[in-house]
């Protein structure tokens, strides 16, 4: 069995017969299966390398930014009006002033 620590996540590559299973720990303490029955016949070192490559593909490290909705601009003549992406789940309609930064009248 091999343990791989990657991007703050703990993965285990365990043999099952001639194949390999990849499991990982979830924040709540339980475990999830990333793959089952993979890399048939490969030795442990090779299976570990293949598992790491797969993990890096499935769980990439990066920052996802949520910007304005550039896909659906409204146009007035040649002018593109780009509004916020109101369909995004993180979009919040503010109907009152911020407490920490109140509007100055």
């Amino acid at each position: 069995m091999q343990n791989i620590f990657y991007n703050d996540m703990q993965f285990s590559v365990k043999p099952r017969g001639e194949r390999w299973d990849i499991t990982y720990s979830l924040p709540n303490g339980s475990s999830a299966i990333a793959g089952a029955g993979l890399f048939a016949g490969l030795p442990e070192s090779e299976a570990g390398a293949r598992a790491l490559a797969l993990i890096k593909t499935i769980f990439p490290v990066g920052i996802k930014t949520v910007g304005p909705d550039v896909t659906h601009p409204n146009t007035i003549g040649d002018l593109k009006i780009i509004g916020p992406d109101v369909t995004h789940p993180n979009f919040i309609y503010w109907n009152k002033d911020s407490v920490s930064c109140p509007r100055e009248l």
Binding site: R16, R19, D21, A32, I33, A34, G35, A36, G37, L38, A40, L54, I58
Partner: peptide, 22 residues
């Protein structure tokens, strides 16, 4: 939904199949 992926991959594992969940 990760929990659905886990359930299905686990079922395939028990069937002796090969699966990856993404």
């Amino acid at each position: 939904v990760q929990k659905n992926i886990d359930r299905v991959v686990k079922d395939i594992k028990e069937m002796g199949g090969e699966a990856v969940g993404i």
